[in-house]
Design a protein around this nucleic acid. Structure first.
Lengths: 293, 293
DNA sequence: TGAGTATGAAAATAATTTTCTTTATTTATC
DNA sequence: GATAAATAAAGAAAATTATTTTCATACTCA
Protein backbone atom coordinates (compact mmCIF):
# COMPACT_ATOMS: atom_id res chain seq x y z
CA UNK A 1 0.00 0.00 0.00
CA UNK A 2 1.18 3.46 -0.70
CA UNK A 3 2.94 5.22 2.14
CA UNK A 4 0.29 7.91 2.38
CA UNK A 5 -2.59 5.51 2.73
CA UNK A 6 -0.49 3.38 4.98
CA UNK A 7 0.22 6.36 7.18
CA UNK A 8 -3.47 7.29 7.28
CA UNK A 9 -4.28 3.80 8.37
CA UNK A 10 -1.59 3.78 11.00
CA UNK A 11 -2.32 7.21 12.42
CA UNK A 12 -6.07 6.87 12.25
CA UNK A 13 -6.38 5.97 15.87
CA UNK A 14 -4.40 8.99 16.99
CA UNK A 15 -6.56 11.43 15.07
CA UNK A 16 -9.55 13.29 16.36
CA UNK A 17 -13.03 12.05 15.65
CA UNK A 18 -13.72 14.12 12.56
CA UNK A 19 -10.24 13.70 11.23
CA UNK A 20 -10.69 9.99 11.53
CA UNK A 21 -13.90 10.22 9.59
CA UNK A 22 -11.99 12.05 6.89
CA UNK A 23 -9.17 9.53 6.90
CA UNK A 24 -11.69 6.75 6.48
CA UNK A 25 -13.38 8.50 3.63
CA UNK A 26 -10.04 8.90 1.88
CA UNK A 27 -9.08 5.29 2.49
CA UNK A 28 -12.46 4.15 1.21
CA UNK A 29 -11.85 5.53 -2.26
CA UNK A 30 -8.64 7.47 -2.59
CA UNK A 31 -8.99 7.41 -6.33
CA UNK A 32 -12.05 9.61 -6.12
CA UNK A 33 -10.61 11.97 -3.61
CA UNK A 34 -7.84 13.09 -5.92
CA UNK A 35 -10.44 14.40 -8.34
CA UNK A 36 -12.43 16.30 -5.77
CA UNK A 37 -12.32 19.82 -4.50
CA UNK A 38 -11.90 20.47 -0.85
CA UNK A 39 -15.48 21.66 -0.51
CA UNK A 40 -16.93 18.59 -2.12
CA UNK A 41 -14.92 16.32 0.12
CA UNK A 42 -15.86 18.40 3.14
CA UNK A 43 -19.54 18.02 2.33
CA UNK A 44 -19.26 14.29 1.82
CA UNK A 45 -17.76 13.97 5.27
CA UNK A 46 -19.99 16.61 6.86
CA UNK A 47 -17.00 18.53 8.06
CA UNK A 48 -15.61 21.93 7.29
CA UNK A 49 -12.95 22.56 4.65
CA UNK A 50 -10.79 24.02 7.39
CA UNK A 51 -10.55 20.63 8.99
CA UNK A 52 -9.32 19.14 5.75
CA UNK A 53 -6.60 21.72 5.33
CA UNK A 54 -5.51 21.15 8.90
CA UNK A 55 -5.55 17.43 8.30
CA UNK A 56 -3.24 17.80 5.32
CA UNK A 57 -0.81 19.85 7.34
CA UNK A 58 -0.72 17.23 10.04
CA UNK A 59 0.57 14.86 7.41
CA UNK A 60 3.16 17.39 6.29
CA UNK A 61 1.63 18.39 3.01
CA UNK A 62 1.66 21.97 1.91
CA UNK A 63 -2.09 21.91 1.62
CA UNK A 64 -4.93 20.02 0.09
CA UNK A 65 -3.85 20.37 -3.55
CA UNK A 66 -0.38 19.17 -2.65
CA UNK A 67 -1.93 16.19 -0.92
CA UNK A 68 -4.00 15.39 -3.98
CA UNK A 69 -1.09 15.48 -6.41
CA UNK A 70 1.07 13.29 -4.22
CA UNK A 71 -1.70 10.85 -3.50
CA UNK A 72 -2.48 10.60 -7.20
CA UNK A 73 1.14 9.78 -7.93
CA UNK A 74 1.19 7.09 -5.30
CA UNK A 75 -2.02 5.50 -6.38
CA UNK A 76 -0.60 5.29 -9.85
CA UNK A 77 2.48 3.51 -8.52
CA UNK A 78 0.57 0.83 -6.81
CA UNK A 79 -1.62 -0.05 -9.72
CA UNK A 80 1.16 0.56 -12.18
CA UNK A 81 3.03 -2.48 -11.06
CA UNK A 82 0.42 -4.93 -9.98
CA UNK A 83 2.82 -7.80 -10.25
CA UNK A 84 4.54 -6.05 -7.38
CA UNK A 85 1.19 -5.31 -5.90
CA UNK A 86 -0.15 -8.74 -5.21
CA UNK A 87 3.01 -10.22 -3.83
CA UNK A 88 4.17 -7.06 -2.26
CA UNK A 89 5.32 -6.59 1.28
CA UNK A 90 4.53 -10.04 2.37
CA UNK A 91 6.46 -11.13 5.34
CA UNK A 92 9.35 -13.50 5.08
CA UNK A 93 7.96 -16.97 4.79
CA UNK A 94 9.59 -20.27 5.48
CA UNK A 95 11.21 -21.93 2.53
CA UNK A 96 10.27 -19.40 -0.10
CA UNK A 97 12.15 -20.18 -3.27
CA UNK A 98 14.97 -17.75 -3.71
CA UNK A 99 13.62 -16.43 -6.98
CA UNK A 100 10.48 -15.29 -5.20
CA UNK A 101 12.52 -13.57 -2.55
CA UNK A 102 14.57 -11.82 -5.19
CA UNK A 103 11.50 -10.56 -6.96
CA UNK A 104 9.83 -9.42 -3.78
CA UNK A 105 12.94 -7.63 -2.65
CA UNK A 106 13.29 -5.86 -5.94
CA UNK A 107 9.67 -4.80 -5.87
CA UNK A 108 10.04 -3.53 -2.32
CA UNK A 109 13.13 -1.55 -3.01
CA UNK A 110 11.93 -0.06 -6.24
CA UNK A 111 8.65 0.94 -4.65
CA UNK A 112 10.38 2.42 -1.68
CA UNK A 113 12.57 4.66 -3.84
CA UNK A 114 9.68 5.75 -6.00
CA UNK A 115 7.41 6.43 -3.08
CA UNK A 116 10.08 8.35 -1.26
CA UNK A 117 10.72 10.53 -4.26
CA UNK A 118 7.07 11.29 -4.73
CA UNK A 119 6.70 12.32 -1.11
CA UNK A 120 9.51 14.85 -1.29
CA UNK A 121 8.84 18.46 -0.55
CA UNK A 122 11.27 20.17 -2.87
CA UNK A 123 11.28 23.52 -1.11
CA UNK A 124 12.03 21.98 2.22
CA UNK A 125 14.73 19.89 0.65
CA UNK A 126 16.23 23.01 -0.83
CA UNK A 127 16.08 24.75 2.52
CA UNK A 128 17.85 21.83 4.16
CA UNK A 129 20.54 21.85 1.49
CA UNK A 130 21.17 25.55 2.02
CA UNK A 131 21.34 25.04 5.75
CA UNK A 132 23.83 22.24 5.42
CA UNK A 133 25.96 24.19 2.96
CA UNK A 134 26.28 27.17 5.23
CA UNK A 135 26.45 25.34 8.55
CA UNK A 136 29.39 26.04 10.79
CA UNK A 137 29.11 22.54 12.20
CA UNK A 138 26.89 19.57 11.43
CA UNK A 139 25.99 16.88 13.96
CA UNK A 140 24.54 13.61 12.74
CA UNK A 141 22.51 11.51 15.15
CA UNK A 142 21.40 7.94 14.54
CA UNK A 143 21.35 4.70 16.48
CA UNK A 144 21.51 1.11 15.28
CA UNK A 145 20.30 0.77 11.70
CA UNK A 146 20.12 4.51 11.33
CA UNK A 147 23.72 4.85 12.37
CA UNK A 148 24.57 3.21 9.06
CA UNK A 149 22.81 6.02 7.26
CA UNK A 150 24.43 8.62 9.48
CA UNK A 151 27.86 7.11 8.83
CA UNK A 152 27.21 7.19 5.14
CA UNK A 153 26.31 10.86 5.20
CA UNK A 154 29.27 11.55 7.40
CA UNK A 155 31.68 10.00 4.91
CA UNK A 156 30.22 12.10 2.13
CA UNK A 157 30.25 15.37 4.04
CA UNK A 158 33.82 14.88 5.16
CA UNK A 159 34.86 14.50 1.56
CA UNK A 160 33.60 17.97 0.71
CA UNK A 161 35.13 19.52 3.78
CA UNK A 162 32.00 20.01 5.84
CA UNK A 163 32.77 20.17 9.51
CA UNK A 164 30.65 17.30 10.78
CA UNK A 165 30.49 14.41 13.18
CA UNK A 166 28.47 11.22 13.42
CA UNK A 167 28.10 9.66 16.84
CA UNK A 168 27.89 6.03 17.69
CA UNK A 169 27.71 6.75 21.38
CA UNK A 170 24.54 8.24 22.82
CA UNK A 171 26.33 10.14 25.56
CA UNK A 172 28.62 11.79 23.09
CA UNK A 173 25.58 12.74 21.03
CA UNK A 174 24.09 14.67 23.89
CA UNK A 175 27.37 16.22 24.89
CA UNK A 176 27.90 17.46 21.39
CA UNK A 177 24.30 18.60 20.99
CA UNK A 178 24.53 20.79 24.04
CA UNK A 179 27.58 22.53 22.64
CA UNK A 180 25.87 23.56 19.42
CA UNK A 181 24.82 27.13 18.72
CA UNK A 182 22.95 29.18 16.15
CA UNK A 183 24.43 28.53 12.73
CA UNK A 184 25.02 24.88 13.51
CA UNK A 185 22.87 22.07 12.21
CA UNK A 186 21.65 18.90 13.90
CA UNK A 187 20.47 16.11 11.63
CA UNK A 188 18.68 13.22 13.31
CA UNK A 189 17.92 9.94 11.60
CA UNK A 190 15.53 7.32 12.89
CA UNK A 191 13.32 4.86 11.11
CA UNK A 192 10.55 5.00 13.66
CA UNK A 193 11.11 8.56 14.73
CA UNK A 194 10.83 7.35 18.31
CA UNK A 195 14.37 6.35 19.21
CA UNK A 196 14.80 7.93 22.65
CA UNK A 197 18.51 8.64 22.35
CA UNK A 198 18.03 10.40 19.06
CA UNK A 199 15.05 12.38 20.32
CA UNK A 200 17.03 13.52 23.34
CA UNK A 201 19.91 14.63 21.17
CA UNK A 202 17.74 16.58 18.76
CA UNK A 203 15.82 18.23 21.58
CA UNK A 204 19.04 19.27 23.16
CA UNK A 205 20.40 20.59 19.87
CA UNK A 206 17.28 22.64 19.30
CA UNK A 207 17.50 24.10 22.77
CA UNK A 208 21.09 25.06 22.07
CA UNK A 209 19.99 27.13 19.11
CA UNK A 210 20.98 24.82 16.26
CA UNK A 211 18.73 24.23 13.28
CA UNK A 212 17.11 20.83 13.50
CA UNK A 213 16.45 18.38 10.70
CA UNK A 214 14.91 14.93 10.99
CA UNK A 215 14.79 12.00 8.62
CA UNK A 216 12.18 9.46 9.59
CA UNK A 217 9.82 7.20 7.77
CA UNK A 218 6.62 8.81 6.71
CA UNK A 219 3.99 9.33 9.37
CA UNK A 220 3.78 11.34 12.51
CA UNK A 221 6.49 10.76 15.04
CA UNK A 222 8.06 12.54 17.96
CA UNK A 223 11.22 13.24 16.04
CA UNK A 224 9.45 14.68 13.01
CA UNK A 225 7.37 16.93 15.21
CA UNK A 226 10.42 18.12 17.02
CA UNK A 227 12.42 19.06 13.94
CA UNK A 228 12.17 22.37 12.18
CA UNK A 229 12.72 20.57 8.88
CA UNK A 230 11.28 17.08 8.92
CA UNK A 231 12.20 14.91 5.94
CA UNK A 232 10.52 11.62 5.18
CA UNK A 233 11.27 8.32 3.57
CA UNK A 234 8.55 5.89 2.62
CA UNK A 235 7.47 3.31 5.13
CA UNK A 236 6.39 0.17 3.45
CA UNK A 237 6.85 -2.29 6.14
CA UNK A 238 4.96 -3.00 9.22
CA UNK A 239 6.11 -6.36 10.52
CA UNK A 240 9.14 -6.72 12.70
CA UNK A 241 10.39 -9.56 10.61
CA UNK A 242 11.11 -7.56 7.56
CA UNK A 243 13.13 -5.15 9.60
CA UNK A 244 13.82 -1.81 8.08
CA UNK A 245 15.46 -2.94 4.92
CA UNK A 246 13.60 -0.88 2.40
CA UNK A 247 13.53 2.14 4.66
CA UNK A 248 17.28 2.22 4.91
CA UNK A 249 17.58 2.24 1.16
CA UNK A 250 15.00 4.99 0.93
CA UNK A 251 16.90 7.02 3.51
CA UNK A 252 20.15 6.61 1.63
CA UNK A 253 18.31 7.75 -1.45
CA UNK A 254 17.48 11.00 0.34
CA UNK A 255 21.03 11.35 1.60
CA UNK A 256 22.26 11.04 -1.95
CA UNK A 257 19.87 13.73 -3.09
CA UNK A 258 20.94 16.04 -0.29
CA UNK A 259 24.59 15.46 -0.97
CA UNK A 260 24.28 15.89 -4.70
CA UNK A 261 22.21 19.00 -4.15
CA UNK A 262 24.91 20.42 -1.91
CA UNK A 263 27.67 19.69 -4.37
CA UNK A 264 25.64 21.11 -7.20
CA UNK A 265 24.80 24.32 -5.38
CA UNK A 266 28.34 24.97 -4.25
CA UNK A 267 29.99 23.41 -7.22
CA UNK A 268 33.04 25.62 -7.31
CA UNK A 269 33.78 25.06 -3.64
CA UNK A 270 33.00 21.40 -3.33
CA UNK A 271 34.07 19.74 -6.53
CA UNK A 272 37.78 20.51 -6.10
CA UNK A 273 37.63 19.12 -2.59
CA UNK A 274 35.85 16.03 -3.75
CA UNK A 275 38.40 15.43 -6.48
CA UNK A 276 41.20 16.14 -4.12
CA UNK A 277 39.97 13.60 -1.58
CA UNK A 278 39.53 11.04 -4.31
CA UNK A 279 43.00 11.54 -5.69
CA UNK A 280 44.56 11.40 -2.25
CA UNK A 281 43.01 8.05 -1.52
CA UNK A 282 44.22 6.76 -4.88
CA UNK A 283 47.71 8.00 -4.29
CA UNK A 284 47.93 6.68 -0.80
CA UNK A 285 46.78 3.30 -1.98
CA UNK A 286 49.26 3.22 -4.76
CA UNK A 287 52.21 3.89 -2.51
CA UNK A 288 51.03 1.43 0.01
CA UNK A 289 50.39 -1.26 -2.58
CA UNK A 290 53.93 -0.85 -3.90
CA UNK A 291 55.60 -1.24 -0.57
CA UNK A 292 53.59 -4.24 0.48
CA UNK A 293 53.68 -7.96 -0.20
CA UNK B 1 5.92 7.68 -22.41
CA UNK B 2 2.72 8.57 -20.74
CA UNK B 3 -0.28 9.19 -22.94
CA UNK B 4 -0.54 12.80 -21.89
CA UNK B 5 3.04 13.65 -22.69
CA UNK B 6 2.78 11.61 -25.81
CA UNK B 7 -0.26 13.56 -26.89
CA UNK B 8 1.50 16.84 -26.18
CA UNK B 9 4.38 15.77 -28.33
CA UNK B 10 2.17 14.64 -31.14
CA UNK B 11 -0.13 17.68 -31.17
CA UNK B 12 2.64 20.16 -30.59
CA UNK B 13 2.87 21.07 -34.26
CA UNK B 14 -0.84 21.78 -34.48
CA UNK B 15 -0.82 24.17 -31.56
CA UNK B 16 -0.38 27.89 -31.68
CA UNK B 17 2.94 29.49 -30.99
CA UNK B 18 2.48 30.17 -27.29
CA UNK B 19 0.68 26.93 -26.68
CA UNK B 20 3.61 25.16 -28.20
CA UNK B 21 5.92 27.01 -25.89
CA UNK B 22 3.80 25.80 -23.01
CA UNK B 23 3.78 22.24 -24.28
CA UNK B 24 7.52 22.31 -24.54
CA UNK B 25 7.88 23.63 -21.03
CA UNK B 26 5.69 20.83 -19.74
CA UNK B 27 7.58 18.21 -21.68
CA UNK B 28 10.87 19.58 -20.44
CA UNK B 29 10.10 18.78 -16.82
CA UNK B 30 6.62 17.46 -16.24
CA UNK B 31 7.59 16.45 -12.75
CA UNK B 32 7.92 20.07 -11.76
CA UNK B 33 4.79 21.22 -13.45
CA UNK B 34 2.59 19.06 -11.29
CA UNK B 35 3.80 20.94 -8.24
CA UNK B 36 3.29 24.40 -9.67
CA UNK B 37 0.41 26.80 -9.66
CA UNK B 38 -0.99 28.11 -12.89
CA UNK B 39 0.46 31.56 -12.26
CA UNK B 40 3.95 30.27 -11.67
CA UNK B 41 3.86 28.21 -14.81
CA UNK B 42 2.45 31.14 -16.76
CA UNK B 43 5.30 33.35 -15.63
CA UNK B 44 7.91 30.76 -16.53
CA UNK B 45 6.53 30.62 -20.04
CA UNK B 46 5.82 34.34 -20.26
CA UNK B 47 2.22 33.71 -21.11
CA UNK B 48 -1.03 34.40 -19.35
CA UNK B 49 -2.80 31.97 -17.06
CA UNK B 50 -5.78 32.15 -19.37
CA UNK B 51 -3.76 30.51 -22.11
CA UNK B 52 -2.93 27.65 -19.82
CA UNK B 53 -6.51 27.03 -18.90
CA UNK B 54 -7.49 27.09 -22.55
CA UNK B 55 -4.64 24.74 -23.31
CA UNK B 56 -5.90 22.27 -20.72
CA UNK B 57 -9.37 22.37 -22.22
CA UNK B 58 -7.98 21.68 -25.68
CA UNK B 59 -6.71 18.42 -24.24
CA UNK B 60 -10.07 17.73 -22.65
CA UNK B 61 -9.18 18.30 -19.06
CA UNK B 62 -11.60 20.04 -16.78
CA UNK B 63 -8.99 22.66 -16.05
CA UNK B 64 -5.47 23.08 -14.88
CA UNK B 65 -5.81 21.28 -11.52
CA UNK B 66 -7.41 18.34 -13.26
CA UNK B 67 -4.51 18.29 -15.70
CA UNK B 68 -2.01 18.30 -12.85
CA UNK B 69 -3.55 15.41 -10.98
CA UNK B 70 -3.80 13.29 -14.09
CA UNK B 71 -0.31 14.11 -15.19
CA UNK B 72 1.05 13.29 -11.75
CA UNK B 73 -0.61 9.90 -11.91
CA UNK B 74 0.85 9.20 -15.31
CA UNK B 75 4.32 10.27 -14.39
CA UNK B 76 4.24 7.87 -11.52
CA UNK B 77 3.52 5.09 -13.98
CA UNK B 78 6.12 6.00 -16.46
CA UNK B 79 9.07 6.67 -14.22
CA UNK B 80 9.02 3.01 -13.36
CA UNK B 81 10.12 2.28 -16.87
CA UNK B 82 13.51 3.14 -18.19
CA UNK B 83 12.92 6.00 -20.55
CA UNK B 84 15.23 7.06 -17.76
CA UNK B 85 17.84 5.42 -19.91
CA UNK B 86 18.44 8.30 -22.20
CA UNK B 87 19.08 10.98 -19.60
CA UNK B 88 20.66 8.64 -17.17
CA UNK B 89 23.92 8.81 -15.32
CA UNK B 90 24.82 12.30 -16.13
CA UNK B 91 27.41 13.79 -13.88
CA UNK B 92 26.64 16.35 -11.25
CA UNK B 93 26.52 19.74 -12.86
CA UNK B 94 26.82 23.14 -11.29
CA UNK B 95 23.56 24.75 -10.32
CA UNK B 96 21.28 22.02 -11.58
CA UNK B 97 17.81 22.70 -10.30
CA UNK B 98 17.00 20.38 -7.46
CA UNK B 99 14.11 18.80 -9.30
CA UNK B 100 16.51 17.64 -12.00
CA UNK B 101 18.81 16.18 -9.40
CA UNK B 102 15.94 14.37 -7.78
CA UNK B 103 14.83 12.86 -11.04
CA UNK B 104 18.33 11.85 -12.02
CA UNK B 105 18.97 10.28 -8.64
CA UNK B 106 15.77 8.32 -8.78
CA UNK B 107 16.58 7.08 -12.26
CA UNK B 108 20.07 6.08 -11.18
CA UNK B 109 18.94 4.21 -8.13
CA UNK B 110 16.06 2.45 -9.79
CA UNK B 111 18.27 1.39 -12.66
CA UNK B 112 20.97 0.21 -10.32
CA UNK B 113 18.56 -2.05 -8.44
CA UNK B 114 17.05 -3.42 -11.62
CA UNK B 115 20.40 -4.01 -13.22
CA UNK B 116 21.76 -5.67 -10.13
CA UNK B 117 18.82 -8.01 -9.91
CA UNK B 118 19.16 -9.02 -13.52
CA UNK B 119 22.85 -9.76 -13.04
CA UNK B 120 22.18 -12.16 -10.21
CA UNK B 121 23.20 -15.75 -10.48
CA UNK B 122 20.55 -17.49 -8.45
CA UNK B 123 22.43 -20.73 -7.93
CA UNK B 124 25.50 -18.98 -6.67
CA UNK B 125 23.34 -16.84 -4.46
CA UNK B 126 21.77 -19.96 -3.05
CA UNK B 127 25.19 -21.47 -2.45
CA UNK B 128 26.31 -18.35 -0.62
CA UNK B 129 23.20 -18.38 1.54
CA UNK B 130 23.78 -21.99 2.50
CA UNK B 131 27.39 -21.26 3.33
CA UNK B 132 26.46 -18.32 5.51
CA UNK B 133 23.77 -20.28 7.28
CA UNK B 134 26.07 -23.08 8.25
CA UNK B 135 29.21 -21.04 8.89
CA UNK B 136 30.89 -21.41 12.22
CA UNK B 137 32.15 -17.86 11.96
CA UNK B 138 31.66 -15.07 9.41
CA UNK B 139 34.18 -12.29 8.79
CA UNK B 140 33.08 -9.19 6.90
CA UNK B 141 35.71 -7.05 5.21
CA UNK B 142 35.13 -3.61 3.75
CA UNK B 143 36.87 -0.25 3.83
CA UNK B 144 35.47 3.26 3.55
CA UNK B 145 32.17 3.26 1.68
CA UNK B 146 32.06 -0.49 1.67
CA UNK B 147 32.42 -0.55 5.43
CA UNK B 148 28.93 0.89 5.55
CA UNK B 149 27.64 -2.10 3.68
CA UNK B 150 29.64 -4.46 5.86
CA UNK B 151 28.29 -2.81 9.00
CA UNK B 152 24.79 -3.17 7.70
CA UNK B 153 25.21 -6.87 7.08
CA UNK B 154 26.85 -7.24 10.44
CA UNK B 155 23.89 -5.72 12.24
CA UNK B 156 21.53 -8.06 10.45
CA UNK B 157 23.56 -11.19 11.07
CA UNK B 158 23.94 -10.41 14.74
CA UNK B 159 20.21 -10.22 15.08
CA UNK B 160 19.81 -13.81 13.94
CA UNK B 161 22.60 -15.05 16.11
CA UNK B 162 25.25 -15.59 13.46
CA UNK B 163 28.70 -15.43 14.89
CA UNK B 164 30.21 -12.65 12.85
CA UNK B 165 32.44 -9.60 12.90
CA UNK B 166 32.88 -6.52 10.73
CA UNK B 167 36.18 -4.74 10.88
CA UNK B 168 36.88 -1.07 10.59
CA UNK B 169 40.56 -1.56 11.12
CA UNK B 170 42.65 -3.14 8.38
CA UNK B 171 45.10 -4.76 10.79
CA UNK B 172 42.32 -6.44 12.69
CA UNK B 173 40.94 -7.71 9.40
CA UNK B 174 44.15 -9.51 8.61
CA UNK B 175 44.57 -10.78 12.12
CA UNK B 176 41.11 -12.23 12.09
CA UNK B 177 41.46 -13.62 8.56
CA UNK B 178 44.55 -15.57 9.52
CA UNK B 179 42.69 -17.22 12.38
CA UNK B 180 39.90 -18.58 10.20
CA UNK B 181 39.59 -22.24 9.28
CA UNK B 182 37.53 -24.55 7.10
CA UNK B 183 33.86 -24.05 7.88
CA UNK B 184 34.34 -20.33 8.34
CA UNK B 185 33.31 -17.75 5.79
CA UNK B 186 35.05 -14.57 4.67
CA UNK B 187 32.90 -12.02 2.90
CA UNK B 188 34.72 -9.14 1.24
CA UNK B 189 33.02 -6.03 -0.06
CA UNK B 190 34.60 -3.47 -2.36
CA UNK B 191 33.12 -1.28 -5.02
CA UNK B 192 36.15 -1.39 -7.27
CA UNK B 193 37.30 -4.84 -6.26
CA UNK B 194 40.79 -3.40 -5.97
CA UNK B 195 40.94 -2.13 -2.41
CA UNK B 196 44.31 -3.45 -1.22
CA UNK B 197 43.34 -3.93 2.43
CA UNK B 198 40.31 -5.96 1.45
CA UNK B 199 42.22 -8.01 -1.09
CA UNK B 200 44.85 -8.84 1.49
CA UNK B 201 42.26 -9.90 4.01
CA UNK B 202 40.42 -12.16 1.59
CA UNK B 203 43.64 -13.69 0.33
CA UNK B 204 44.65 -14.46 3.87
CA UNK B 205 41.23 -15.90 4.70
CA UNK B 206 41.38 -18.18 1.68
CA UNK B 207 44.84 -19.38 2.65
CA UNK B 208 43.50 -20.18 6.12
CA UNK B 209 40.91 -22.51 4.63
CA UNK B 210 37.82 -20.35 4.90
CA UNK B 211 35.27 -20.09 2.10
CA UNK B 212 35.60 -16.78 0.30
CA UNK B 213 32.83 -14.57 -1.05
CA UNK B 214 33.23 -11.22 -2.75
CA UNK B 215 30.78 -8.46 -3.52
CA UNK B 216 32.08 -6.01 -6.10
CA UNK B 217 30.64 -4.04 -8.92
CA UNK B 218 30.27 -5.91 -12.15
CA UNK B 219 33.38 -6.51 -14.20
CA UNK B 220 36.62 -8.30 -13.65
CA UNK B 221 38.57 -7.32 -10.59
CA UNK B 222 41.25 -8.78 -8.38
CA UNK B 223 38.81 -9.40 -5.58
CA UNK B 224 36.23 -11.16 -7.74
CA UNK B 225 38.91 -13.37 -9.25
CA UNK B 226 40.17 -14.24 -5.81
CA UNK B 227 36.83 -15.27 -4.36
CA UNK B 228 35.30 -18.70 -4.67
CA UNK B 229 31.88 -17.09 -4.87
CA UNK B 230 31.99 -13.70 -6.51
CA UNK B 231 28.77 -11.67 -6.34
CA UNK B 232 28.19 -8.55 -8.38
CA UNK B 233 26.30 -5.33 -8.14
CA UNK B 234 25.72 -3.11 -11.14
CA UNK B 235 28.31 -0.49 -11.92
CA UNK B 236 26.66 2.53 -13.36
CA UNK B 237 29.06 5.22 -12.56
CA UNK B 238 32.42 5.99 -13.86
CA UNK B 239 33.23 9.54 -12.82
CA UNK B 240 34.71 10.30 -9.47
CA UNK B 241 32.23 13.07 -8.96
CA UNK B 242 29.31 10.81 -8.64
CA UNK B 243 31.04 8.80 -6.01
CA UNK B 244 29.66 5.37 -5.43
CA UNK B 245 26.18 6.30 -4.50
CA UNK B 246 24.20 3.94 -6.66
CA UNK B 247 26.61 1.09 -6.11
CA UNK B 248 26.17 1.22 -2.38
CA UNK B 249 22.42 0.96 -2.78
CA UNK B 250 22.86 -1.94 -5.18
CA UNK B 251 25.12 -3.68 -2.70
CA UNK B 252 22.65 -3.24 0.11
CA UNK B 253 20.03 -4.67 -2.17
CA UNK B 254 22.10 -7.83 -2.45
CA UNK B 255 22.69 -7.90 1.30
CA UNK B 256 18.94 -7.75 1.83
CA UNK B 257 18.42 -10.63 -0.54
CA UNK B 258 21.08 -12.70 1.19
CA UNK B 259 19.70 -11.96 4.61
CA UNK B 260 16.12 -12.64 3.65
CA UNK B 261 17.23 -15.81 1.94
CA UNK B 262 18.99 -16.93 5.10
CA UNK B 263 16.03 -16.24 7.30
CA UNK B 264 13.69 -17.95 4.91
CA UNK B 265 15.81 -21.06 4.64
CA UNK B 266 16.32 -21.45 8.35
CA UNK B 267 13.00 -20.02 9.33
CA UNK B 268 12.48 -22.06 12.46
CA UNK B 269 15.90 -21.18 13.82
CA UNK B 270 16.13 -17.58 12.84
CA UNK B 271 12.70 -16.09 13.21
CA UNK B 272 12.49 -16.61 16.96
CA UNK B 273 15.88 -14.99 17.36
CA UNK B 274 14.89 -12.08 15.19
CA UNK B 275 11.73 -11.54 17.16
CA UNK B 276 13.56 -11.93 20.39
CA UNK B 277 16.11 -9.29 19.45
CA UNK B 278 13.35 -6.98 18.35
CA UNK B 279 11.40 -7.36 21.57
CA UNK B 280 14.47 -6.88 23.70
CA UNK B 281 15.26 -3.59 22.08
CA UNK B 282 11.67 -2.48 22.56
CA UNK B 283 11.67 -3.47 26.20
CA UNK B 284 14.96 -1.91 26.95
CA UNK B 285 13.79 1.30 25.41
CA UNK B 286 10.59 1.24 27.30
CA UNK B 287 12.31 0.87 30.65
CA UNK B 288 14.79 3.51 29.79
CA UNK B 289 12.10 5.91 28.59
CA UNK B 290 10.19 5.38 31.82
CA UNK B 291 13.09 6.06 34.09
CA UNK B 292 14.12 9.15 32.26
CA UNK B 293 13.18 12.80 32.61
C1' DT C 1 -13.68 25.43 36.74
C1' DG C 2 -10.13 26.12 33.65
C1' DA C 3 -6.59 24.75 30.44
C1' DG C 4 -6.27 22.81 26.40
C1' DT C 5 -8.09 20.85 22.23
C1' DA C 6 -11.30 20.41 18.37
C1' DT C 7 -14.18 22.58 15.25
C1' DG C 8 -16.68 25.55 12.17
C1' DA C 9 -18.00 30.25 10.42
C1' DA C 10 -16.50 33.56 8.08
C1' DA C 11 -12.89 36.57 6.45
C1' DA C 12 -8.81 36.77 3.81
C1' DT C 13 -6.15 35.11 0.41
C1' DA C 14 -4.93 32.71 -3.50
C1' DA C 15 -5.89 30.23 -7.56
C1' DT C 16 -8.44 29.49 -11.51
C1' DT C 17 -11.65 30.45 -15.04
C1' DT C 18 -14.35 33.45 -17.85
C1' DT C 19 -15.37 37.41 -20.31
C1' DC C 20 -14.25 40.87 -23.00
C1' DT C 21 -10.98 43.44 -25.66
C1' DT C 22 -7.00 43.89 -28.36
C1' DT C 23 -3.81 42.28 -31.48
C1' DA C 24 -2.16 39.39 -35.04
C1' DT C 25 -2.99 36.53 -38.95
C1' DT C 26 -5.22 34.80 -42.68
C1' DT C 27 -8.29 35.05 -46.59
C1' DA C 28 -11.06 37.03 -50.12
C1' DT C 29 -11.78 40.66 -53.10
C1' DC C 30 -10.68 44.47 -55.87
C1' DG D 1 -0.18 43.65 -54.57
C1' DA D 2 -3.16 46.16 -51.36
C1' DT D 3 -6.79 46.17 -48.21
C1' DA D 4 -10.84 45.06 -45.71
C1' DA D 5 -13.38 41.38 -43.51
C1' DA D 6 -13.09 37.30 -40.97
C1' DT D 7 -10.93 34.50 -37.92
C1' DA D 8 -7.77 33.08 -34.53
C1' DA D 9 -4.61 34.03 -30.67
C1' DA D 10 -3.61 36.14 -26.56
C1' DG D 11 -3.86 38.94 -22.53
C1' DA D 12 -6.05 42.03 -18.92
C1' DA D 13 -9.01 42.18 -15.76
C1' DA D 14 -13.30 40.75 -13.65
C1' DA D 15 -15.73 37.01 -11.78
C1' DT D 16 -15.74 32.92 -9.80
C1' DT D 17 -14.19 29.38 -7.19
C1' DA D 18 -11.04 27.11 -4.09
C1' DT D 19 -8.20 27.17 -0.28
C1' DT D 20 -6.24 28.82 3.88
C1' DT D 21 -6.26 31.50 7.97
C1' DT D 22 -8.17 33.68 11.78
C1' DC D 23 -11.02 33.95 15.33
C1' DA D 24 -14.80 32.68 18.31
C1' DT D 25 -17.18 28.89 20.31
C1' DA D 26 -18.03 24.42 22.01
C1' DC D 27 -16.30 20.58 23.95
C1' DT D 28 -13.29 17.51 26.88
C1' DC D 29 -10.64 16.03 30.48
C1' DA D 30 -8.28 16.75 34.64
Amino acid sequence: MSPILHALEKEKSKLSQLERKLAERILASPGDVVHMGITELAEQCSISPATITRFCKVFHFKGFPDFKVKLAAELAHSDAAPQDGNSSYQDIVAGNPLSVIVEAMQANHLASIRDTTSLLNIERLQAVISLLCSARRVDLYGMATSSIVAQDFYQKLVRIGVNCTAFADSHMQITSASSLAAGDVAFAISYSGETPETIDALTCAGASGASTISLTSYGSSTLATLAEFPLFSSSLEQGMRRGDMASRIAQLHIIDILFTGMVSSKFGDFIPKLEHSYLNVQQYRHKRGGSMQ
